[in-house]
């Protein structure tokens, strides 16, 4: 009986939505919602940030209906491949390892350096304890270096780890960290910036070639008419690398 009611509910669910399917598919945009200014949940509970504005514009240019979905960073790739959403637009750097599992569009943020932030400038970055978000290019870089890596699930926790002394320094994207150091006098940038990754692109399933081309075309058109550069400067400041 229970099973019957369950499948009846599912039938009703799919039947009701089938009528809405006439106008092509809705693209579900997966993001993390915890990485300002790239993407975050604003005070009204909506997805906001550079990638929200960019994604809405790309969908408009490609003539797609898009819907925003948030997902934990740790499971953001598995949930794409299992079909919970259709794209990842979450400040994800294009790397060879990820490219084996999913496909990327061309980059919409040029390669930007990553920096270290600490409470004092005498920390030993080569052998100290460095916090980074799990499954990022930054955590991969620290793991390869001689330093001790402390991984956290969210970006905010990596910074909190430095503030409460669990880690000597945090290693992350420059645009994420400078927003924080600008407002916290105790934190400072230490060491030299490290160039990492091949720029940020949208992730898609490898079977979704057509969708990838639509987004690629939309990104190209935004690069050509200068709107992408204007958006980069608006969200990341004047020092951000832009496209030619």
């Amino acid at each position: 009986m229970k099973k019957l009611a369950f499948s009846a509910a599912i039938l009703a669910l799919t039947a009701g939505a089938a009528f809405a399917d006439g106008h092509g598919r809705t693209i579900r945009m997966g993001t993390e919602g915890a990485y300002p200014p790239y993407n975050f949940i604003n005070d009204d509970g909506e997805v906001d940030g550079f990638e929200r504005v960019l994604g809405d514009e790309l969908c408009a240019r490609a003539g797609l209906t898009c819907e925003w979905v948030t997902n934990d960073w740790d499971s953001i790739i598995p949930n794409l491949t299992s079909g919970n959403y259709d794209t990842i637009i979450a400040g994800m750097s294009i790397t060879d390892e990820r490219d084996e599992v999913i496909d990327f569009t061309q980059d919409y943020i040029p390669p930007t350096p990553s920096i270290y932030v600490a409470l004092s400038d005498d920390v030993d970055l080569a052998t100290g304890v460095i916090a980074a978000q799990a499954n990022t290019i930054q955590s991969g870089y620290i793991a390869e270096s001689g330093a001790t890596l402390l991984e956290y699930a969210t970006p905010d926790e990596t910074v909190a780890a430095v503030r409460n002394g669990e880690a000597d320094a945090v290693f992350a994207d420059i645009d994420f960290l400078t927003d924080i150091t600008d407002e916290d006098a105790e934190l400072m940038v230490v060491g030299d910036p490290v160039p990492l990754g091949g720029g940020v692109g949208m992730g898609l399933r490898e079977t979704d070639g057509e969708l990838r081309e639509m987004f690629n075309a939309a990104i190209t058109s935004m690069k050509e008419d200068g709107t992408l550069n204007a958006l980069l400067v608006e969200w990341f400041g004047d020092d951000v690398p832009t496209y030619e």
Binding site: T14, A17, A18, A20, R25, T26, V69, S82, G83, E206
Partner: peptide, 27 residues
Amino acid sequence: RQGANFVVCQAAKIPLSSAPQWVHEVY
């Protein structure tokens, strides 16, 4: 099953990807 990907046809998705977000959440 294509490697790590689980790909069913659009009409078989539960809920359909065109369904509003609250339907996905309720499901």
